[in-house]
Design a protein around this nucleic acid. Sequence first.
DNA 1: TCTACATTTGCTCGCGCGAGCAAGAAAAAT
DNA 2: ATTTTTCTTGCTCGCGCGAGCAAATGTAGA
Lengths: 340, 340
Amino acid sequence: MPNEKRPPFAENVTADDVAIAAGVSRWTVNRAFRKDASISPKSLQKVMVAAERLGYLPDLRAASLASDRSNLVALLIDDFANPHKLVMMERLTRILRREGWDILLVNTLNRDDAGHALLNASQRRVDAVILIGIQFDDDVLETALQARRFRKLIVFARSSENPNTISIAVDDVGAMTELARYVHRRGYRRPLFLAGPQSYSAHLLRKETFLEYWGKHFSFRPESVTVPAYDPALAGTIVMETLSHRGPSDLPDVIVCENDALAMGASDVIRHKLGLEIPKDIAITGFDDVPQADNPNYRLTTYRQPLTEMVEYLVKVLADPEERDLNRLFTGRLIPRHSA
Amino acid sequence: MPNEKRPPFAENVTADDVAIAAGVSRWTVNRAFRKDASISPKSLQKVMVAAERLGYLPDLRAASLASDRSNLVALLIDDFANPHKLVMMERLTRILRREGWDILLVNTLNRDDAGHALLNASQRRVDAVILIGIQFDDDVLETALQARRFRKLIVFARSSENPNTISIAVDDVGAMTELARYVHRRGYRRPLFLAGPQSYSAHLLRKETFLEYWGKHFSFRPESVTVPAYDPALAGTIVMETLSHRGPSDLPDVIVCENDALAMGASDVIRHKLGLEIPKDIAITGFDDVPQADNPNYRLTTYRQPLTEMVEYLVKVLADPEERDLNRLFTGRLIPRHSA
DNA sequence: TCTACATTTGCTCGCGCGAGCAAGAAAAAT
DNA sequence: ATTTTTCTTGCTCGCGCGAGCAAATGTAGA
């Protein structure tokens, strides 16, 4: 072998180059980089030394093309105003990467765009699509499933009744029942439910659970208000519109919110615009336990989803070759803080 | 042509299938999906009709492999505690997608992991890598550039003096000078600078600019404190440690923060733990203008980076074939609010 | 109508790797 | 030592597409 001195990390080093340098065949080189392949320790060593020296790394596009597994998942997200998304992304990216999955991030602009986003992802032949968002109603899921170029469609952090999707979510009924019971026991009697956009039926789960609980125990259905986006500022505006013209006796004594984003928006206007005190004048509960919920401005009583556990389950789902029912609901934990 | 009735969106429809259905060659089919290719309107029409019927979409892995352009960029992010990241991601994902770029999202866990993350991305043969984070010091950039399997290394929202990277950032010196002048003119005289982790020299720019401005006008160098992460809670802790044992006359009259995340953390402890009023007792300024800066709890005087403009420039950089100096600094806008 | 030129189409070859098989080497059993 | 079994290696072929050229088709001018 001549004492060739090529620069380290030259452009476009291919398995053939490494094969020549290591004195083995091209296939042995590729095998060295696959953990399932059978290769002798000696060849592995030789290949790795040569690869290191030449700066070789397998081309995952080619590997994917040849094997029809991309180790890529698409992450479709549509709601960047909700701080909870940042938490979910952090958890997902960290754990999926640890397990060898790469993530294609797609910002789904709006409901009509969801289909395009899906097709977009399918052109990269992703192995799975993870949906985190609010605009993925049944129609969207249906078109998504028709363009089946990916094996799995996972709806994360939302329950879905579509039989062809895998839903990994918190048990909304259980969670909201726990919250309702908490609010009940703390002595609140005039609740207002603040709901998010109700684009499909699963979104109604928290609201319905709460209203039914209350109906059962007090034989009246509490008032509820809908915010057309999970946007704190917008939630504030809506709450303001709803409450600003009421006398003190007409005000709710607790606002139960579908999530923390809404709760924080409500909290802001209650304190700063209506000049009321939380929880003395009006109490507030949220859902998700975003980092800001613990902030001294909010001290939000909320419900924490077991995100890590859910993502750990997600990676199992991704690895699962079988076609069976993989839906799963998780139980989280009520986090009592100052706001209620 | 037989009246074959295959199900729409069958699995693995390839260009050959469409070619047969449309009565053209395989290459004409692929050409129909490339906007630069020359193809007659008639064939285009035929191909598109057949493709639509069969549910065909080109395989971007194969296209990438054959053309050596992936239309993929890797987005390396390391700091999910800062809400500004969410804003940047929203802007980047939206605009890049509009321009036909897909995004590989990589969570860079820590400084040592940055190299791995880079190699990870390079295995997908991304066309460019965008770095948004704090842990990308010169060493990391250097190793990144050695493993040059991507054409461009873009440091976004941070200036970088590395000659081989493209830096798209706000003009920190100009911005901080404007902020310093504002603080100066508003009559504050005992500033404290709250800095983030100083992993490499560009991070010192805002701090140094402020301290020098003050030194020039008042011939003393203001006090400064360092927070080891851009984490609001941690910033609060550090501010608390620094100020809690001081008498009123020893307190700063303004805290100038390197960014909003730090400013919000500082604001929280000043109001809720020290029981002081903002801006009466202590004023605060931030940097970035995150959505929460406008929140009634903060009303933060801050500096808004022209993010959209910066991302629009980024897409131009991505499309630019030339090898020339593409670094650019942008000028933002001071947003005066209540906090200072 | 014929030539000159532009546009469109088809084709060969290769991008870098993996599946799966056959040949070869090594280990275990007889 | 010989046979059997197991492990390792090399190989053919194909994944789906694009570069770039050659052939075919179309268009304009004389």
